[in-house]
Every structure is written in structure tokens, then in C-alpha cells.
């Protein structure tokens, strides 16, 4: 297993917490609205082949929030700043859920952020038939119940959810949730203008969804495919919103084949 280190760098006048591990070409991993779960099993596996960068978004984890980061577009601006500063432009990237939306916003702004992008259960586009679950009027336990299709198949379940959170973890979860509220409140978890702007994208994109996603409907995979010309879609059966956690082996296999 690759060793990950945790480092803090200064970006745009604030501290950014980044987990970094592995060797090879850089791979930028963008976490979802729930926060940075650190280098889980899927990240360890990817680090066998890539140098994985897993930052905590501004306002999440131990990362500061520069006062101007209020919207997803601000966050995208922040990350292009980070990429430029750290020499991480034109790299491979994976975005999970809200992090997928973030990657898509960045794709809509610049052609030199990424060389290849994988969007996983990505928010950002409004479904036609279903709805993106409003995670702000349900509690963390309810969100977790909806996020996983079958907890018994989650290899890291005990490690991640086996014990009650410490007061520090509860505080961190609240402050992460606060940042999610700041970024995605209205319009909720999507940008109505995003699909039109994605028609500029020419880099290879791969869309991955859990077939049984109860948070962001699987129909959004098709909507992203329509918006991103030439993109491929993989739907992972019997799997919820977070394939990288619920079915890490299937997920890593799909990721390595594409990346």
C-alpha cells in the first residue's frame, strides 16, 4: 500500500490541506459535499499507479476558506489557481459527487486544467425526471442510509462508520456541512447553465454512476454524456452513490482502464 502524507500548502492566501501519496503521473481527486474522507482503499489502489493529490476543499477539513469562495464557480477559480501554482495543470482528475460538479465547472472554464476527467455520481446538472436529494433537510444518518445501496458490501464500513463520531469529528462534519450549504444552496446542487458550457470540452471524459444512486439520480449520467461529446458511461450495478467506497475494486478497475 502506498504511503500517504498530509501536507499544508498556502494557496490564494489560505492554507490548503492535501493528502498526497503514490508515484507516477499526478492524479487530482476532488471530494464530495460530505467532506474529505482521506486516502481510503480506492485511493491507495490508485496510488500504485499515480501520484494521488487529495485536497480538502477550502472551508473543508483543515483547509481555510478565503472569504471570496462563496460559489462553485469561485471554488473552480480557486482550483485553477492551485493547479497553476503547483504545476498541476493538464493532469488526470476524478471528481466525486459535488467534486464531480467542481471538475465539470473547471472543464467549462479552461481547456488546460485536465488531460482526462472521470465524473462519479456527479452533481451539477438538474435531472429531468427525478430530483437530487435535499441533504440539507435530513440528518447525517439519513444521508448515509441513502448513500449506500448495501452497507454489507462496503469493505471499510466498520472503519468509517463502526463507532460513534468523536466531538471533534462531529464539529468537523458540521463545519463541512456549512461549507456545502454555502456552495450549493440555490440553485440546489446544480448550475442551470453548466450543460451548455460543457460543449466546449474536448478532453476525454468518463462518467461513472452507481446504478442505485439515491442521492443523485442515475439519469444524470445520461445528461452528462449528452453535454460532454465523446464521453463514455459506466453504470456499476447494485451500487449506491459512492462506488469508490461501496465497490472499490470495481471502481478502481474502471478508473484504471480509463485513466
Amino acid at each position: 500500500m502506498a504511503n500517504f502524507t498530509e501536507e499544508t500548502i498556502s494557496v490564494a492566501g489560505g492554507n490548503l490541506q492535501v493528502y498526497k501519496g503514490g508515484s507516477g503521473d499526478p492524479l487530482l481527486v476532488l471530494h464530495g459535499a460530505g467532506g474529505n474522507a482521506g486516502p481510503r482503499r480506492y485511493a491507495q489502489a490508485l496510488a500504485e499507479k499515480f501520484t494521488v493529490y487529495l485536497p480538502s476543499h477550502p472551508g473543508y477539513g483543515k483547509s481555510d476558506r478565503p472569504g471570496w469562495v462563496e460559489t462553485m464557480q469561485d471554488l473552480a477559480c480557486f482550483y485553477t489557481w492551485y493547479q497553476e501554482q503547483e504545476g498541476l495543470e493538464n493532469v488526470r482528475a476524478i471528481g466525486f459527487s459535488m467534486g464531480g460538479w467542481l471538475a465539470a465547472e473547471m472543464l467549462s472554464m479552461t481547456g488546460h486544467a485536465f488531460s482526462k476527467v472521470m465524473l462519479v455520481g456527479a452533481a451539477g446538472i438538474k435531472p429531468n425526471d427525478g430530483e437530487i436529494t435535499d441533504i440539507f433537510i435530513i440528518n447525517p444518518g439519513q444521508i448515509r442510509d441513502l448513500a449506500y445501496h448495501d452497507p454489507s458490501q462496503v469493505p471499510e464500513w466498520d472503519e468509517m462508520f463502526g463507532s460513534d463520531p468523536t466531538p471533534e469529528q462531529t464539529d468537523q462534519a458540521e463545519s463541512d456541512r456549512e461549507m456545502a450549504i454555502r456552495l450549493t444552496w440555490r440553485p440546489y446542487m446544480h448550475n442551470p447553465r453548466l450543460p451548455a458550457k460543457l460543449s466546449r470540452v474536448s478532453v476525454p471524459t468518463h462518467i461513472v454512476w452507481g446504478e442505485n444512486d439515491n442521492l443523485v439520480p442515475v439519469e444524470c449520467a445520461g445528461l452528462y454524456q449528452q453535454a460532454l461529446s465523446g464521453s463514455q458511461v459506466t453504470v456499476i450495478p447494485n451500487c449506491g452513490h459512492s462506488p469508490q467506497i461501496e465497490k472499490p475494486d470495481d471502481f478502481v478497475q474502471t478508473a484504471l482502464a480509463f485513466l
Binding site: F136, E174, R177, E178
Partner: peptide, 10 residues
């Protein structure tokens, strides 16, 4: 009332 209704985070 659920806490997230009465006093949402933030």
C-alpha cells in the same frame, strides 16, 4: 422538530 429544521447548520 428535527434539529436540521429548527436550526440548520450555519
Amino acid at each position: 422538530l428535527p434539529r436540521d429544521y429548527a436550526s440548520p447548520v450555519g
